[in-house]
């Protein structure tokens, strides 16, 4: 629970000033170079006049992000549990995972479009793929890095694997899981946008809108779409922060009191 409500000007004013300066610089640059970037008022006007178009496209991209990210998060966490519990599974699966993950997602996306067509499926898959890896790696680290001494207490009680997972590892892994989510959720938007780039034209989505508008040199629409992608990222991260505070309220006090053996 925050003690003060962060309403003092010294907490929010610096960021506002930075944004203000950036906006002014942008506006000045845009007015001097009308064929490079649009002015802020052009972007704003486009957002208002074509609000329904943007809204429809944002819903499409949002659906891709939600479905893809959910699939990637669940798959990453579940596989992490399996790997944490059975070392042999880690040895068996991890090399394949690494091979898939070092393959550039931009290269996989067109291939997936060929395989699955221009529908939603390749977008779900690309989004899930980019989310999956940071979730897997972070969850795995979190499931392993639990308080050794609490683990000792459970072992002297002959706790089963399931009991150790239920009472210690699951919650104990959450600080890492949320660190993973902070990386994964912005990536989910990248994944959805990239998938739309390669499958542009056929389906809607803010990524498609960006490529189509850019090809037509329609600067206000291009940048309005980019702004909305950015806005989606901000919303996701803010939601995450709210959920994190509800789940991990104990985390700061926990690290302050938990003593780890010094190495």
């Amino acid at each position: 629970m925050p003690k003060s409500r962060n309403l003092r000007w010294s907490s929010w004013a610096p960021a506002v000033v930075t944004f203000g300066i950036a906006a002014v610089l942008w506006q000045v640059t845009a007015m001097a170079n009308p064929y490079v970037i649009p002015t802020l008022d052009q972007v704003g006007l486009s957002l208002i006049t074509d609000a329904d178009v943007y809204w429809a496209n944002m819903l499409v991209t949002g659906l891709e992000v939600v479905v893809g990210a959910t699939a990637g998060i669940v798959a990453g966490f579940v596989l992490a549990i399996i790997m944490a519990e059975f070392q042999i599974m880690e040895r068996a699966i991890m090399p394949l995972v690494v091979v898939v993950m070092v393959t550039p997602i931009v290269a996989i996306a067109p291939a997936l479009v060929v395989a699955f067509g221009f529908g939603m499926m390749p977008k779900f898959i690309v989004t899930a793929l980019v989310v999956f890896f940071p979730m897997l790696v972070n969850s795995l680290a979190g499931l392993r890095d639990v308080d050794d001494r609490a683990l000792d207490v459970l072992k002297t009680l002959h706790a089963s694997r399931w009991e150790i997972f239920r009472d210690l590892r699951f919650m104990g892994s959450m600080p890492y899981v949320f660190a993973g989510l902070r990386i994964a959720l912005p990536l989910a938007i990248v994944g959805a946008a990239v998938a739309e780039f390669v499958a542009a034209g056929q389906q809607a989505g803010l990524g498609s809108l960006v490529t189509i508008a850019a090809a037509q040199a329609n600067l206000p629409v291009t940048w309005a779409s980019i702004t909305l992608l950015c806005f989606m990222g901000v919303v996701l991260i803010s939601l995450l922060a709210v959920v994190r505070n509800r789940v991990l309220w104990w985390s700061n006090s926990a690290t302050a009191h938990r003593q780890r053996p010094s190495r």
């Binding site: 308080d147 001494r149 609490a150 000792d152 207490v153 002297t156 009472d167 210690l168 919650m171 104990w250 985390s251 006090s253 926990a254 009191h257 938990r258 003593q259």
Partner: peptide
């Protein structure tokens, strides 16, 4: 066996 480790090792949640 009851074990009391060096740190309390309580579950903070």
């Amino acid at each position: 066996i009851g074990l009391v480790p060096q740190s309390p090792a309580l579950l903070p949640w």
